[in-house]
């Protein structure tokens, strides 16, 4: 499918960049005329993915987060969020609702569940020791 627009961002794994990343993605999809709920869903999913890079991927050490956004002809938006952090040993387990390795930091273990619930598709590729890439896909501008 033809890509009509794309963007790339990279930023350090500081928690203040969670707000930056979701706002940047919201601005990127704005000309698709998203509904309030489509925009809020996408922002929430991006926020979860970026938080995972900071809390889990880099375990609060400093690192770089890479975000790419693509808009396709049919209004499909794809956002890929990637870190070069510790990676996930067992992706299936990590995606289980309420599973968390950071309970003492008050993480609810809902990150992937929220991404899956708020997007049309979520793909995770991870290599332990090398990093994790999460791709979120959502159709925008199709809500009546």
């Amino acid at each position: 499918m033809k890509t009509v627009n794309e963007m790339k961002l990279s930023f350090p794994s500081k928690s203040c960049n969670e707000a930056f990343a979701r706002s940047a993605v919201a601005a990127f999809v704005m000309n698709l005329d998203p509904t309030v709920s489509e925009l809020s869903d996408l922002k929430t999913a991006v926020s979860e993915a970026v938080t995972n890079c900071i809390v889990h991927g880099y375990r609060r050490q400093s690192g770089e987060i890479f975000l790419t956004g693509k808009i396709f002809e049919n209004g499909k938006v794809s956002v890929k969020i990637r870190d070069k952090g510790c990676g996930i040993e067992n992706v299936e387990q990590a995606m289980q609702p309420l599973f968390t390795t950071a309970a003492d930091e008050e993480r609810a273990g809902l990150g992937f569940a929220v991404m899956q619930s708020f997007c049309d598709a979520v793909r995770v590729r991870s290599t332990p020791g090398k990093g994790t890439a999460v791709t979120l896909e959502k159709l925008i501008g199709t809500d009546e």
């Binding site: 929430t44 926020s47 979860e48 008050e106 993480r107 609810a108 929220v114």
Partner: peptide, 11 residues
């Protein structure tokens, strides 16, 4: 706006 961090906050 709230992501799942709000759940951790409440719990």
């Amino acid at each position: 706006f709230m992501d799942s961090s709000g759940v951790g906050l409440v719990m």
